[in-house]
Amino acid sequence: MASLAALDLFNVQGRVAVVTGGSSGIGLMISKGLVQNGAKVYIAALPSDPIADVVTELNHMGRDAGGTAEGFICDVSSKESISGLVQHISQKEQSLDILISNAGIRRDPPQACNVLTANLEELQKSMWSIEEKDWEDTFRVNSTAHYFLSVAFLPLLAAAAEKQTGNGGKGRDEGKGVIIITSSCASMHNVTNVDLTSYATSKAATDHLVKLLAAKYNRFYVRVVGMNPGFVPSNMNPVGTEGNIFSSLFDKVPAKRAGASEDMAGTILYLVSKAGAYVDGVSLCVDGGRILVANGQE
Protein backbone atom coordinates (compact mmCIF):
# COMPACT_ATOMS: atom_id res chain seq x y z
CA MET A 1 0.00 0.00 0.00
CA ALA A 2 1.34 3.43 -0.95
CA SER A 3 2.47 5.67 1.89
CA LEU A 4 0.66 8.97 2.25
CA ALA A 5 2.98 10.24 4.96
CA ALA A 6 4.31 13.72 4.26
CA LEU A 7 7.90 12.55 4.76
CA ASP A 8 7.42 10.08 1.91
CA LEU A 9 5.33 12.22 -0.42
CA PHE A 10 7.60 15.28 -0.26
CA ASN A 11 10.90 13.44 0.08
CA VAL A 12 13.81 14.87 -1.97
CA GLN A 13 16.59 13.21 0.00
CA GLY A 14 19.58 12.50 -2.23
CA ARG A 15 18.07 14.09 -5.32
CA VAL A 16 20.28 16.09 -7.65
CA ALA A 17 19.19 19.60 -8.61
CA VAL A 18 20.49 22.54 -10.63
CA VAL A 19 19.23 26.00 -9.67
CA THR A 20 20.06 28.93 -11.95
CA GLY A 21 20.15 32.29 -10.22
CA GLY A 22 20.54 30.22 -7.07
CA SER A 23 22.68 32.66 -5.10
CA SER A 24 20.02 35.28 -4.32
CA GLY A 25 16.30 35.99 -4.11
CA ILE A 26 13.85 33.25 -5.03
CA GLY A 27 16.62 31.03 -6.35
CA LEU A 28 18.37 31.10 -2.98
CA MET A 29 15.10 30.40 -1.15
CA ILE A 30 14.60 27.35 -3.37
CA SER A 31 18.20 26.20 -2.89
CA LYS A 32 17.85 26.46 0.88
CA GLY A 33 14.63 24.46 0.83
CA LEU A 34 16.25 21.70 -1.21
CA VAL A 35 19.50 21.34 0.77
CA GLN A 36 17.68 21.45 4.11
CA ASN A 37 15.70 18.46 2.90
CA GLY A 38 18.74 16.47 1.84
CA ALA A 39 19.14 17.32 -1.87
CA LYS A 40 22.43 17.84 -3.70
CA VAL A 41 22.19 21.28 -5.27
CA TYR A 42 24.35 22.84 -7.95
CA ILE A 43 23.77 26.59 -7.99
CA ALA A 44 24.60 28.54 -11.15
CA ALA A 45 25.07 32.29 -11.05
CA LEU A 46 27.01 35.16 -12.57
CA PRO A 47 30.64 35.73 -11.52
CA SER A 48 29.57 38.96 -9.82
CA ASP A 49 27.30 37.00 -7.46
CA PRO A 50 28.54 35.77 -4.02
CA ILE A 51 28.63 32.12 -5.12
CA ALA A 52 31.34 30.92 -2.71
CA ASP A 53 29.67 32.50 0.35
CA VAL A 54 26.29 31.09 -0.60
CA VAL A 55 27.71 27.59 -1.12
CA THR A 56 29.28 27.71 2.33
CA GLU A 57 25.98 28.80 3.85
CA LEU A 58 24.03 26.10 2.02
CA ASN A 59 26.41 23.33 3.04
CA HIS A 60 26.09 24.41 6.65
CA MET A 61 22.29 24.45 6.41
CA GLY A 62 22.15 21.04 4.75
CA ARG A 63 24.56 19.31 7.12
CA ASP A 64 21.98 17.58 9.35
CA ALA A 65 19.81 16.38 6.45
CA GLY A 66 22.71 15.32 4.21
CA GLY A 67 22.13 18.12 1.72
CA THR A 68 25.09 19.61 -0.13
CA ALA A 69 25.80 22.46 -2.52
CA GLU A 70 28.33 23.33 -5.20
CA GLY A 71 28.55 26.48 -7.27
CA PHE A 72 29.23 27.19 -10.91
CA ILE A 73 29.58 30.37 -12.92
CA CYS A 74 27.07 30.53 -15.75
CA ASP A 75 25.63 33.31 -17.87
CA VAL A 76 22.30 31.83 -18.96
CA SER A 77 22.03 34.36 -21.80
CA SER A 78 24.86 32.48 -23.55
CA LYS A 79 24.47 29.05 -25.19
CA GLU A 80 28.20 28.55 -24.79
CA SER A 81 28.00 29.20 -21.06
CA ILE A 82 25.00 26.87 -20.72
CA SER A 83 26.92 24.16 -22.58
CA GLY A 84 29.82 24.60 -20.18
CA LEU A 85 27.51 24.22 -17.19
CA VAL A 86 25.98 21.03 -18.58
CA GLN A 87 29.42 19.64 -19.33
CA HIS A 88 30.51 20.24 -15.73
CA ILE A 89 27.39 18.59 -14.32
CA SER A 90 27.62 15.66 -16.75
CA GLN A 91 31.12 14.89 -15.49
CA LYS A 92 29.75 14.56 -11.98
CA GLU A 93 26.27 13.09 -12.48
CA GLN A 94 24.68 10.43 -14.67
CA SER A 95 21.22 11.94 -14.27
CA LEU A 96 19.54 15.13 -13.09
CA ASP A 97 16.39 14.89 -11.00
CA ILE A 98 15.52 18.59 -10.89
CA LEU A 99 16.25 21.62 -13.05
CA ILE A 100 15.11 24.92 -11.54
CA SER A 101 15.44 27.42 -14.39
CA ASN A 102 15.04 30.50 -12.27
CA ALA A 103 17.44 33.27 -13.33
CA GLY A 104 15.70 36.41 -14.55
CA ILE A 105 16.11 40.15 -15.04
CA ARG A 106 13.91 43.24 -15.24
CA ARG A 107 14.65 46.35 -17.26
CA ASP A 108 12.39 49.31 -16.47
CA PRO A 109 12.23 52.45 -18.62
CA PRO A 110 14.99 54.88 -17.52
CA GLN A 111 12.44 57.66 -17.39
CA ALA A 112 9.94 56.25 -14.92
CA CYS A 113 6.37 57.30 -14.28
CA ASN A 114 3.33 56.03 -12.44
CA VAL A 115 1.51 54.42 -15.34
CA LEU A 116 -1.79 54.46 -13.43
CA THR A 117 -1.83 58.25 -13.06
CA ALA A 118 0.53 59.69 -15.71
CA ASN A 119 -0.92 61.92 -18.42
CA LEU A 120 -0.54 60.95 -22.07
CA GLU A 121 2.68 62.92 -22.62
CA GLU A 122 4.36 61.54 -19.47
CA LEU A 123 3.34 57.98 -20.30
CA GLN A 124 4.59 58.15 -23.88
CA LYS A 125 7.88 59.74 -22.85
CA SER A 126 8.47 57.07 -20.23
CA MET A 127 7.58 54.14 -22.49
CA TRP A 128 9.71 55.51 -25.35
CA SER A 129 12.77 55.88 -23.09
CA ILE A 130 13.43 52.14 -22.81
CA GLU A 131 16.18 50.92 -25.13
CA GLU A 132 15.75 48.18 -27.73
CA LYS A 133 18.60 46.26 -26.11
CA ASP A 134 16.72 46.21 -22.81
CA TRP A 135 13.91 44.31 -24.51
CA GLU A 136 16.37 41.97 -26.20
CA ASP A 137 18.26 41.24 -22.97
CA THR A 138 15.03 40.68 -21.06
CA PHE A 139 13.78 38.07 -23.49
CA ARG A 140 17.21 36.45 -23.78
CA VAL A 141 17.32 35.77 -20.02
CA ASN A 142 13.64 35.48 -19.09
CA SER A 143 12.46 33.32 -21.99
CA THR A 144 15.16 32.07 -24.36
CA ALA A 145 17.48 30.85 -21.59
CA HIS A 146 14.78 28.50 -20.24
CA TYR A 147 14.51 26.93 -23.66
CA PHE A 148 18.23 26.29 -24.10
CA LEU A 149 18.72 25.11 -20.51
CA SER A 150 15.92 22.57 -20.87
CA VAL A 151 17.26 21.31 -24.18
CA ALA A 152 20.84 21.06 -22.93
CA PHE A 153 19.88 19.16 -19.77
CA LEU A 154 17.24 16.96 -21.46
CA PRO A 155 19.35 13.75 -21.63
CA LEU A 156 20.20 13.93 -17.92
CA LEU A 157 16.60 14.72 -17.00
CA ALA A 158 15.27 11.88 -19.15
CA ALA A 159 17.77 9.52 -17.50
CA ALA A 160 16.39 10.49 -14.09
CA ALA A 161 12.79 9.96 -15.21
CA GLU A 162 13.65 6.55 -16.65
CA LYS A 163 15.84 5.29 -13.82
CA GLN A 164 14.56 2.16 -12.10
CA THR A 165 13.58 2.52 -8.44
CA GLY A 166 13.82 0.00 -5.67
CA ASN A 167 10.08 -0.73 -5.69
CA GLY A 168 9.99 -1.70 -9.37
CA GLY A 169 8.84 1.66 -10.63
CA LYS A 170 10.70 4.46 -12.41
CA GLY A 171 12.04 7.82 -11.34
CA ARG A 172 9.18 9.59 -13.08
CA ASP A 173 6.74 7.88 -10.66
CA GLU A 174 8.48 9.69 -7.81
CA GLY A 175 8.64 13.06 -9.56
CA LYS A 176 12.20 12.79 -10.87
CA GLY A 177 13.17 14.37 -14.18
CA VAL A 178 11.36 17.69 -13.75
CA ILE A 179 11.96 21.23 -15.00
CA ILE A 180 10.58 24.10 -12.94
CA ILE A 181 10.61 27.46 -14.74
CA THR A 182 10.23 30.62 -12.70
CA SER A 183 7.82 33.06 -14.31
CA SER A 184 5.85 35.82 -12.58
CA CYS A 185 2.29 36.78 -11.74
CA ALA A 186 3.06 39.83 -13.92
CA SER A 187 2.44 37.58 -16.91
CA MET A 188 -1.17 37.13 -15.84
CA HIS A 189 -2.32 40.72 -15.31
CA ASN A 190 -1.46 44.28 -16.34
CA VAL A 191 -2.40 46.29 -13.25
CA THR A 192 0.66 47.90 -11.67
CA ASN A 193 2.02 51.38 -11.06
CA VAL A 194 5.30 50.61 -12.84
CA ASP A 195 5.85 49.98 -16.54
CA LEU A 196 6.76 46.28 -16.56
CA THR A 197 5.87 45.81 -20.22
CA SER A 198 9.08 44.13 -21.38
CA TYR A 199 9.33 42.03 -18.21
CA ALA A 200 5.67 40.96 -18.19
CA THR A 201 5.72 40.17 -21.91
CA SER A 202 8.79 37.99 -21.52
CA LYS A 203 7.11 36.16 -18.63
CA ALA A 204 3.94 35.62 -20.66
CA ALA A 205 6.13 34.05 -23.33
CA THR A 206 7.66 31.88 -20.61
CA ASP A 207 4.22 30.66 -19.55
CA HIS A 208 3.53 29.46 -23.07
CA LEU A 209 7.02 27.98 -23.30
CA VAL A 210 6.12 25.76 -20.32
CA LYS A 211 3.29 24.26 -22.36
CA LEU A 212 5.40 23.90 -25.51
CA LEU A 213 8.25 22.16 -23.72
CA ALA A 214 5.95 19.87 -21.77
CA ALA A 215 4.32 18.79 -25.03
CA LYS A 216 7.70 18.09 -26.63
CA TYR A 217 9.07 16.15 -23.67
CA ASN A 218 5.92 14.20 -22.81
CA ARG A 219 7.14 10.98 -24.48
CA PHE A 220 9.96 10.84 -21.93
CA TYR A 221 7.76 12.21 -19.14
CA VAL A 222 10.25 14.93 -18.38
CA ARG A 223 7.79 17.23 -16.70
CA VAL A 224 7.81 21.00 -17.24
CA VAL A 225 5.99 23.19 -14.72
CA GLY A 226 5.91 26.96 -14.26
CA MET A 227 5.89 28.82 -10.97
CA ASN A 228 4.55 32.39 -11.03
CA PRO A 229 5.49 34.21 -7.81
CA GLY A 230 4.03 37.51 -6.70
CA PHE A 231 5.77 40.01 -4.43
CA VAL A 232 8.78 38.13 -3.03
CA PRO A 233 11.93 39.77 -1.59
CA SER A 234 14.83 39.79 -4.04
CA ASN A 235 17.40 42.11 -5.58
CA MET A 236 14.79 42.83 -8.23
CA ASN A 237 12.08 43.54 -5.64
CA PRO A 238 13.58 44.82 -2.36
CA VAL A 239 10.47 44.34 -0.23
CA GLY A 240 10.67 46.43 2.93
CA THR A 241 13.28 48.80 1.54
CA GLU A 242 12.50 52.50 1.74
CA GLY A 243 11.45 53.85 -1.62
CA ASN A 244 10.33 50.49 -3.02
CA ILE A 245 8.34 51.33 -6.15
CA PHE A 246 5.77 48.63 -5.35
CA SER A 247 5.22 49.62 -1.70
CA SER A 248 1.80 51.16 -2.39
CA LEU A 249 0.57 47.82 -3.77
CA PHE A 250 1.48 45.51 -0.87
CA ASP A 251 -1.74 46.15 1.07
CA LYS A 252 -3.75 45.12 -1.99
CA VAL A 253 -2.47 41.55 -1.72
CA PRO A 254 -5.23 39.54 0.01
CA ALA A 255 -2.61 37.74 2.12
CA LYS A 256 -1.51 41.18 3.39
CA ARG A 257 2.16 40.26 3.15
CA ALA A 258 4.95 39.56 0.73
CA GLY A 259 5.89 36.01 -0.17
CA ALA A 260 8.36 34.26 2.12
CA SER A 261 11.00 31.56 1.73
CA GLU A 262 8.51 29.01 3.10
CA ASP A 263 6.10 29.83 0.28
CA MET A 264 8.73 29.37 -2.42
CA ALA A 265 10.40 26.30 -0.92
CA GLY A 266 7.09 24.65 -0.07
CA THR A 267 5.81 25.04 -3.62
CA ILE A 268 9.01 23.61 -5.05
CA LEU A 269 9.08 20.64 -2.67
CA TYR A 270 5.55 19.77 -3.82
CA LEU A 271 6.28 20.10 -7.53
CA VAL A 272 9.59 18.19 -7.62
CA SER A 273 8.66 15.31 -5.31
CA LYS A 274 6.34 12.32 -5.50
CA ALA A 275 3.56 14.60 -4.27
CA GLY A 276 3.65 16.53 -7.55
CA ALA A 277 4.62 13.72 -9.91
CA TYR A 278 1.27 13.98 -11.75
CA VAL A 279 1.60 17.72 -12.42
CA ASP A 280 2.84 18.64 -15.89
CA GLY A 281 2.53 21.47 -18.42
CA VAL A 282 0.88 24.01 -16.13
CA SER A 283 1.86 27.25 -14.38
CA LEU A 284 1.12 27.68 -10.69
CA CYS A 285 0.55 31.22 -9.42
CA VAL A 286 1.93 31.75 -5.90
CA ASP A 287 1.11 35.37 -5.11
CA GLY A 288 -1.10 35.56 -2.02
CA GLY A 289 -4.15 36.25 -4.18
CA ARG A 290 -2.75 39.34 -5.90
CA ILE A 291 -3.90 38.04 -9.29
CA LEU A 292 -7.52 38.03 -8.10
CA VAL A 293 -7.40 41.67 -7.09
CA ALA A 294 -5.55 42.69 -10.24
CA ASN A 295 -8.25 41.04 -12.34
CA GLY A 296 -11.04 42.74 -10.44
CA GLN A 297 -12.27 39.73 -8.48
CA GLU A 298 -12.22 41.34 -5.02
Score class of each variant (00 low, 15 high):
Ala215Ser: 09
Val178Trp: 00
Ala160Tyr: 01
Glu174Cys: 05
Ala205Gln: 13
Phe139Ala: 06
Ala214Gln: 10
Ser150Ile: 00
Arg172His: 10
Ser150Met: 03
Gly177Cys: 06
Ser183Asn: 13
Ile180Ser: 03
Glu131Trp: 10
Leu213Ile: 02
Glu131Pro: 08
Val178Met: 00
Tyr199Ser: 07
Phe153Asp: 03
Gly177Ile: 02
Ile180Thr: 07
His146Ser: 12
Asp195Cys: 13
Thr144Met: 13
Ala158Phe: 00
Lys163Met: 02
Leu120His: 11
Ile181Gly: 13
Ile130Ala: 09
Ala200Cys: 02
Gly166Met: 05
Ser126Arg: 09
Ala204Leu: 12
Asp134Phe: 11
Ser183Met: 09
Asn218Trp: 05
Ala205Tyr: 11
Thr197Asn: 06
Asn167Phe: 09
Ala158Lys: 11
Lys163Gly: 05
Ile180Leu: 15
Val191Tyr: 07
Gly177Tyr: 03
Ile181Pro: 04
Phe148Trp: 07
Thr192Phe: 06
Ala159Gly: 08
Gly169Val: 06
Cys185Val: 14
Gly171Pro: 10
Leu213Gly: 02
Ala159Ser: 12
Glu136Gly: 03
Asp195Arg: 02
Ser184Asp: 15
Thr201Glu: 00
His189Met: 09
Lys203His: 14
Gly177Met: 04
Asn193Pro: 01
Lys211Pro: 03
Pro155Ser: 00
Ser126Asn: 09
Asn167Cys: 11
Met188Lys: 14
Glu136Trp: 09
Lys211His: 11
Lys125Asn: 11
Ala215Tyr: 04
Asp173Pro: 01
Pro155Cys: 03
Gly175Ile: 03
Ser126Glu: 08
Ile180His: 03
Gly177Ala: 07
Met188Tyr: 02
Ser129Met: 09
Leu116Ala: 13
Val141Glu: 08
Lys211Cys: 01
Lys133Gln: 15
Leu196Gln: 08
Glu132Gln: 11
Ala159Met: 04
Trp128Asp: 15
Val151Phe: 03
Ala158Asp: 00
Ser187Asn: 09
Asn167Leu: 12
Val141Asn: 11
Ser126Pro: 05
Gly169Glu: 14
Ala158Met: 01
Glu174Arg: 01
Leu123Pro: 00
Val210Thr: 05
Ser187Lys: 07
Ser126Gln: 02
Asn119Ala: 08
Glu122Ala: 15
Asn218Glu: 08
Glu132Ser: 14
Thr201Asn: 06
Met127His: 07
Ala205Gly: 15
Asn142Gln: 14
Lys211Tyr: 07
Ala186Asp: 10
Tyr217Ala: 06
Ser129Lys: 10
Thr206Phe: 00
Lys211Ala: 05
Phe139Pro: 06
Tyr217Ser: 06
Ala214His: 08
Cys185Ser: 15
Glu136Leu: 12
Glu122His: 11
Asn167Tyr: 06
Arg140Tyr: 03
Asp137Pro: 10
Gly175Phe: 05
Ile181Cys: 13
Leu154Thr: 00
Thr117Glu: 14
Pro155Met: 00
Thr138Asp: 05
Cys185Trp: 08
Thr192Gly: 07
Gln164Phe: 04
Gly168Val: 11
Ala204Gln: 10
Glu174Tyr: 10
His146Gly: 12
Cys185Phe: 11
Trp135Ala: 10
Glu132Tyr: 14
Leu120Ala: 15
Leu156Gln: 04
Asn193Val: 07
Glu162His: 04
Glu122Ile: 12
Val210Ala: 01
Arg172Ala: 10
Gly171Val: 02
Ala215Asp: 07
